[in-house]
Design a protein around this nucleic acid. Sequence first.
DNA 1: TAAAATCGTTCACTTAAGTTAAGAAATGAA
DNA 2: TTCATTTCTTAACTTAAGTGAACGATTTTA
Lengths: 193, 193
Amino acid sequence: MKNILFDFISKYVSLTEDEKNVIVSLDIFRSVKKGTTLLKEGQKSKDSYFVLKGCIRTYYVVDSEEKTTAFYTEMEALTPPCVISKTPSEYYISCIEDSILTVSNSDMEAEINSKFPKFETVCRILSEELLAKQRMDFDEFKTSSPEQRYLNLLHKRPDLIQRVPQHQLASYLGIKPQSLSRLRARILEKSKA
Amino acid sequence: MKNILFDFISKYVSLTEDEKNVIVSLDIFRSVKKGTTLLKEGQKSKDSYFVLKGCIRTYYVVDSEEKTTAFYTEMEALTPPCVISKTPSEYYISCIEDSILTVSNSDMEAEINSKFPKFETVCRILSEELLAKQRMDFDEFKTSSPEQRYLNLLHKRPDLIQRVPQHQLASYLGIKPQSLSRLRARILEKSKA
DNA sequence: TAAAATCGTTCACTTAAGTTAAGAAATGAA
DNA sequence: TTCATTTCTTAACTTAAGTGAACGATTTTA
């Protein structure tokens, strides 16, 4: 399981055995059951997550309704905005499959960054890449209709449509579950004709 | 004008006079006329921008129609995704007001980062913050209706509504110019009643 | 295992955005 | 200044998403 993390890091910098041992000694690997809530609205937290296996989601509760905004699966990293802004979280994070994660504390990261400049470089490159990727996702969302968004998702992350409940997918696409049902029926109808 | 940049950087790290001189010697300050295109679709570029004064926008051209996705004004930084991915740009960047920018090359940044770890720290923190901020913007967009988005913008960046043409604002809000006109009339109607 | 809760779909109805077109206002260029 | 272009608004019509409700299927839990 550790190898997944090291393979990931090796895309950015190469690590010595010593450096790998430092990471392992941090004891950041966690096994988490489906349904576990990792963060609640209003809580303060310094924890960042990296998904080795499974799936976690972030959601807001607005008028007692869940609004799912993101899913994180294998090889994806999540640093909640509240960790950066040092304010109480505006959203929830929960585990939608039995998962294996790394959970790292921002104090810990700060210490490692100052001791090993190499890690800071990884963090910098990673956030720059994520920023660019997310920018493109946002742009695509803005410039597409719900139907196009669904078709895009089908193309880019077909796994999500299988492993995630429809009503969570719907709010991820910015629409209501009934609209997603209808939209799928419409697409099916078109493909028949 | 340089002071704007140094004030900005000083929010993250403190610079010595020597370090400031290094930055000035890079000769990155540029004055740009309204209407200038800084980047075109299909071009490769290594340039990042920081707005000292004025406003630039990014837009895609889809079916010969402009889709504006972002505006950058005073104290905002833009590293186009194509600089990160090293692929041809998918969008245009143009200047919508006479502006003063810094234009920095990614090779130059890489060199400075390796020479002055302090700069790498600024870059890391800055991208982490931007990533968190943009994540929240994206979440807000996803969970709001066009009307709510407009009201949000009115609240958070009232200046944009003044300085940016309506049709560009509309696509920034993910709708057509006609819909924005109608939506504004609707809001006005409500506030009267 | 039975009851309760959640989930996905369908339907009828409402609301708002997309589309097409037209005209007035503002802007830019000759 | 005048002409041409672009921009903004309005309107009528079309399309699709939101809403509320119902129902069966699935999942949870007592």
